[in-house]
Structure formats: C-alpha cells, structure tokens
Design a protein around this nucleic acid. Structure first.
Lengths: 217, 217
DNA sequence: GTCTATATGTTGATAGAC
DNA sequence: GTCTATCAACATATAGAC
C-alpha cells in the first residue's frame, strides 16, 4: 500500500501528481494498444517520455508495472464496488459487480495480459509485485467469502461447500478464464462465470434459465 | 503432434532418440530444480550440453520449451489416463485421474511455472506454443465434457449447467489454482477442486462429507 | 554431433548536461 | 525534471573448427 517515494521536500506534490498522471496514461495506452514484452522503453514512448525520464518516477521496472496494476485495481474498485476490506459489499452487488469487472476485462486485453504475465513472475518472493498479488488475492477472497456466507444462510448459494474454498474457486476461475480468453478471444468469460453462479444456486431447481455460457471452439 | 525434424537420413533414429533423452532429462531437471528465467544456456548446463549443442536438436527456444511441455503431457496422460482424443475415459477415472494430475503438479513446481509462463506468452498467435495450448485445451475440454454429459445423465453431476461450460470451468479452476499455489505454496489445489466436484454432486444432499478443501490464509 | 567463438540484439539502469 | 549518451549484462542464434 505505501508507495516508495524518493523525493522528500520541494516539488513533492507535483511529483506525486505527475506520477499519477503517468500511471493513468500508461493504463490507457496498455489497455488500448495492448502489451507485448512490456519493456520500459516501449511504455516510455507510449506515454511521451524518454526511458530515463520515466524511470525518474519509479525505482525499477518491476515497481513501475506493479504500480500500474495497483492503479487499475483502484479504478476498478471505485467503478464496480469490490475489494473493500471492510466488506461493505451487498450480496446482490457482488455477483453483478464481479461480472461487471470480468466483462470490462474483455475491453482491455493489454491489461489482462500484463496482469497474467506479472502474476506468474511474481511467484518469486523477491519480485516487487509478490506482496501485491498475495495481499490482493487475500482481500478479494475475504470479501467473496463474507458475501457467500450470507448467501448460503439465505439459501441463495449451495452450502455444500466451504465459503473460503468457494471464494478461492471463483478467483481461480476468473484467472484461468483469462488465460483461455487470451488464447481464444471468442471465449465468453462473463457468461461462463455467470453459468457457474447459476449452477451453484439451489433455487431455480424447477425453472432453469441462465445455465448456459459461451461455447467458443 | 507432428514433430519438426531436421535430419533426413543417416543417424535419423539416433537423433530422435537423443532428442527424447534430452527432453526427459530436461523435464526432470526443471521439475526438481525449478525454472527461473529459463534461458537455453541454463537448461543446456543442466542437461550437460553446450547451448549450441542443445539448439542442434531444436529450432528455437520457443520450440524447445514447447516440446518439453508436450513431453510432460505425454507422460502424464500415460500415467493418469487423460487427454485421449478417443474419449476412452470412464466417469470415475476422470475425477480420480484429474485429481491425480493436480496432486502430482505440487511435486513439480518448475513445470507448473514453465506451463503458466508459456501459456501467457503463447497468447501471441505467432508464438511457437500457440497451437499447442489451443488444441491442448480443446482436447482436454472435449474429454471432460463427454464424461460430464454421462455423469449428468446418471445423476452424479448437476445438470444445471452445460457440459461444455462446466468443462471450461474445470480447466480454468485448475489453471487459476496453479497461479495461487505458485504465489502461496500452502494452497491445496487438489482439495479445492475436489470440493468443487462435491458441491456439484446432487447426491450427498443428506450426508455431507467431502465439502472442505484446503484453506491456506 | 558437439564444441568454441561470435554476431547481433535488447534490456534495465546510471551519469551527467541542460 | 527531462533529456542524451552510455553501460554492463545477458539473451538467442549462427558459423565454423574438430
């Protein structure tokens, strides 16, 4: 959470503001133009800075790309109402919000690619993004598990599985579907997840409706 | 499936044999000692060849690592009875076999890492492993969907979801759990998947038993 | 068939001018 | 604060000796 800032005094505020501006611009560029290789130079060109100019704001390449993903989460959280540690997400909003994020992902292939790539690299405990991914996953699952627990009590989700485990499953499905989607863009990520939600809903035993997702290939 | 062979005559068989030997050795080394960066040189050292010597058997780095994963699948298929295109997998064997593979993965972290990394890189249609991953996924899902269809008819799996979609879900869960596991080795991949199997089993409504998986953090 | 040597390229990061 | 110039480190791939 705590950003690593180098400047101590003077143009402190300006530096932070510019940093944020860079992140937003980078986010936009990566989302639209995609992400391949992700060298600092490539990104620097895209945001209109030299490579050294860009590295003035970030200590290293890893830190830079981690900051970009952090920023992405920040924006998505605000837009879809997820990830809050206080668990202030209502049951109905979770499913809708989660599906909203997934659906949105299909519009930002470059970010999906960056996320997937970095999450693999970050398995190294020394990687700058390691902590980010670990704690991001924990928070995400906590929010999910809390809502699932409530939904199970209300009979909206099968209680045949532990909430923590199911939360982990949903995280895994989302991540795994992204890989499938990157390989075959016809894959319907949101539809597939929605179908899983439906399959785990004990109601709708008689009337079956949303049981179908996409079936590319 | 068709290997790209360079040599036409002469020591043809010998070359292929050596190639296989290299792959097996590489598989073993990566599985045990892990995989970081995965340069050709690193692998060459591990298998007791110079970098150039290793590249004598493979056209490029991408092709080499693709061949390694192909070999891994080959061995796993034989050992656990999966991936056969003819769908000769019995219902009971699928769940057991799949869990067997997942459980085995926890013993070969380097291979899991290589697989995850390459599957992301292979999203580029020009990547040498692109075709491999696409067709691997298709075959895997076909086998799964066929078995699920039978199980649904037998009332062993909920019919509240389309078999093709559920097959995709299982693939996604497995891939996604691998990422979680690489980040946090305490994650119980097999246990989580088994819990999902159980949650989707309409039987065991009264007696609930295997509904719990691992809950690391 | 395997090696050494090398061509060629790219990367992340730093030094220093402005 | 941003640039140009430069660095060392490493990668893949190839040429050619043995």
């Amino acid at each position: 959470m705590a950003d690593s800032r180098k400047e101590r005094r003077g143009s402190y505020a300006k530096g932070v503001a510019k940093r944020e501006e860079i992140l937003e611009r980078a986010l936009d560029v990566i989302a639209r133009e995609g992400y391949r290789g992700a060298s600092i130079k490539e990104l620097a060109d895209a945001v209109g800075l030299s490579q050294a100019g860009l590295l003035h704001y970030f200590d290293s390449k890893e830190e830079l790309f981690t900051a970009i993903l952090r920023k992405r989460d920040e924006i998505d959280s605000a837009g879809f109402g997820l990830y809050q540690p206080d668990g202030s997400v209502s049951s109905g909003d979770l499913r809708a919000g989660y599906l909203g994020v997934i659906r949105h992902n299909a519009d930002v292939p470059g970010l999906v690619h960056l996320f997937a790539r970095l999450s693999v690299d970050a398995s190294d405990p020394d990687h700058a993004a390691h902590e980010f991914f670990v704690s991001r996953g924990q928070t995400l699952r906590e929010v999910f598990a809390a809502v699932i627990t409530k939904q199970q009590a209300a009979g909206e989700v099968t209680d045949r599985i532990d909430p923590d485990v199911l939360a982990r499953v949903f995280q895994a499905v989302a991540d795994g579907l992204q890989v499938q989607w990157m390989l075959e863009p016809d894959v319907d990520m949101a539809g597939t997840i929605d179908a899983l939600f439906a399959a785990l809903d004990p109601r709708s035993d008689a009337d079956r409706n949303g049981a179908r997702g996409g079936e590319a290939s």
